[in-house]
Design a protein around this nucleic acid. Structure first.
Lengths: 145, 145
DNA sequence: GTTAGTGCAAATTTTTTGCATCGGT
DNA sequence: ACCGATGCAAAAAATTTGCACTAAC
């Protein structure tokens, strides 16, 4: 088990004098399980276990967890922020601007670029989850006709 | 002057039986000039020339222009879609998740990756404008402390 | 003269905020 | 018991839709 990947929620919270609540556990768990999900989707997932949880709490909790470094968000396709656990289930998203399809690709494709950015400008690419936009093979074929 | 970069708005519209209006000209012009801008910013820019233009028209026109391939949108940092002319003023955006800073980098960094994606999976990366997320040098330094 | 395009207002959708209550420590 | 966290309702943003009027063709 990798040492840095498992800072327990309880510990992180306690370290800052924050409280461990069922909602926070559920939200983190949902984000981990879903891989990448919008606040809406997290809400639905959480509600499947604890029906009464308010959407407001989801937003507040996601924001908190992000501040704590336990989750991050990126923007896949259309205006919907999606949250995920850094380093977990890592892969690239190739989002087709034309048909909206999302395919996944191995993260290793990014390594050379990540390396160069770090060397050249000290910028550490978040390669946890990453969205790249373009035109998928199918749509590219159509456009040529 | 590159041949493919200048399909006149009038021509594109006429080809589809659509009408050339002042608003459409102004919106396209604003997107070109601003480089990358949210609907809101486009609205403000347009209103500086033609005060009465409604935000609704901005949304509708951006959608139309995107359908015509004259502009595209991507999501920089926080939930705000930004529109730009494909191939124009091209550069990478490096968005810092921590402090929100956006720095620009030359597009050439992406070429190897773009090449590989096209070869491997037929995916044409939209390298017109592109946002990469991560931690900037300044924030990375802070985090180490 | 036709009919697409625009402006306006209202409806939706998404996210944020204020405040009383509840529950972790 | 204290004070942070939650739920609820309402506010604030952001985006979309319906419809009558204007203007491009």
């Amino acid at each position: 088990m990798p040492a840095e990947t498992a800072p327990s929620l309880a510990d992180v919270l306690r370290a800052r004098g924050l409280r461990l609540t069922a909602q926070r556990q559920l939200v983190l768990e949902a984000v981990q399980r879903l891989g990448h999900a919008t606040p809406e989707q997290v809400h639905q997932a959480v509600c499947r276990t604890a029906a009464g949880v308010n959407i407001t709490t989801i937003y507040r909790t996601l924001e908190l967890l992000e501040g704590l470094g336990l989750v991050t968000h990126t923007h896949l396709s259309h205006g919907a922020p999606t949250y995920h656990v850094p380093g977990e289930r890592s892969h690239l998203h190739l989002v087709c601007h034309r048909c909206g399809a999302i395919e996944e690709a191995p993260l290793s494709l990014m390594h050379p670029l990540a390396e160069q950015l770090r060397t050249d400008r000290g910028f550490s690419l978040d390669i946890g989850h990453m969205a790249l936009f373009g035109t998928c093979a199918a749509c590219a074929a159509e456009e040529e006709s």
